[in-house]
Design a binder for these strands. Structure first.
Lengths: 234, 234
DNA sequence: AGGGCAATGTTCAGATCCGGTAAGGACTCG
DNA sequence: CGAGTCCTTACCGGATCTGAACATTGCCCT
């Protein structure tokens, strides 16, 4: 559960999937399967609704819609959204595939298909759409060096620069005992010497702000360690 | 639709395709067809050669290779290259597809397939790998580096050169906390040194002109960040 | 088990750093 | 010459850091 997570749906940043499908017999199992895998699923049954729906990361688009032409939906989505579009349809002629892919679809899947493959294709396109969505996840703590944001139990916690840098050192290698010296040289100056009480002050601030019991452990005589399996008691 | 973005190969920047295929009967027509469409094609017949080949934009990878396992090739390519990988194989079981896609493949095409579809899929993955994006859209803010125009809520906002450059840095990677140093070196001189109040002056001007509450956030002690989900209160 | 000692936790106030803002002057370009 | 742009300086309020003093904890030795 620890380490870098890339593009897997998580509680903090769920991947939003918009299913555009008018056949209940297909939409329902899709919704059910994707939800179980942690995706946040919204289902609509027409092209008009699809274009009015909220923002999504992935759009599963059936081409045989009652109102608007499927390819038209695809083009319009592209005009204002970066969402990945996976066309999911029964029509599998090569001409149809080429037309859809050239109208902005990222992938084209012919029914019937397996849920496992669909999810694998979703992961594949998300790798390209959100290339840098890599942050650290340790239990209910997330640390994103890109945005320099930290959340605990889904809520953002405001950290000062030093606090963030220290936490980043710890979370980059969960469980490893990191020495005081390493922390001081990495967060402060390359060559640090002298009193080190300042580190304890910041560690205390971190513990108070994160408020996760036992998350940051003291390794007596050495340094500190981030505990992957710490509870988040609130 | 904001201009159909064309990733068609051009004479100036030909798209380099690496075909990894040991069956001459397939490799040869592929090479011929892709070359005719303007791609720069290199063909190799083994996994080892594939890993030693020059840089490519797209790799067409047959999984049934004589030496190394195809998926191993895929993983290793991913380790050092951003090239799009399209697996092209005769084995079409769902398990194979999922495995390949999760090992870094961008697409999976089962033989036999048409050249038109292959090229459409190449264009589709290239759209994501080399986003030929002409302008940035973040919420109700648009930034067009080509024309150097900026609009907020549909209305154009006049920015000075420096203001535009700063905004371009921010909008190019929405949400990322960009350090003062990076902004100063990218907008001003490559090696900037000294007081930095000038940056704050321009940031203030940007905030005033864009007039979107919370769009440009200060990351205390670090730099600034453009918030993708900022409201546009008008 | 208990005492000694060093390491760590806590608290807090002063020092320092940082960012927002305003004003003035230099510079460019038409 | 005038408008617009850019840079510098200065000041202020607030956030943050830091060192010190004191309290507590954990280790080790007798």
């Amino acid at each position: 559960m620890s380490g870098v997570i890339s593009n897997a749906p998580s509680a903090e940043q769920p991947v939003r999937v918009l299913v555009v499908e008018d056949d209940e017999g297909i939409a329902w199992p899709l919704r059910r399967g994707l939800s179980r895998s942690g995706y946040e699923v919204q289902t609509v049954a027409s092209g008009r609704e699809a274009l009015e729906a909220g923002p999504a990361d992935v759009v599963l688009l059936d081409l045989g819609l009652p109102d608007v032409d499927g390819l038209e939906v695809c083009r319009r989505l592209r005009a204002y959204s970066d969402a990945a579009v996976i066309v999911v349809t029964a029509r599998g002629e090569e001409g149809d595939r080429v037309a859809a892919l050239d109208d902005g679809a990222d992938d084209y899947l012919v029914k019937p298909f397996g849920l496992a493959e669909l999810e694998a294709r979703i992961r594949a396109v998300l790798r390209r759409v959100h290339p840098g969505r890599t942050h650290y996840v340790v239990g209910r703590l997330t640390v994103d060096p890109r945005t320099r944001r930290v959340t605990v139990r889904g809520e953002e916690v405001a950290l000062t620069p030093k606090e963030f840098d220290i936490l980043e050192c710890l979370v980059a290698d969960p469980g490893r005992a990191i020495s005081r010296h390493e922390l001081l040289t990495r967060v402060w100056d390359e060559n640090w010497y002298g009193p080190t009480r300042v580190l304890d002050v910041h560690i205390a601030a971190l513990r108070r702000k994160l408020a996760v019991d036992g998350l940051i452990e003291t390794v007596y005589g050495h340094g500190f360690r981030l505990v992957p399996g710490a509870e988040a008691g609130d």
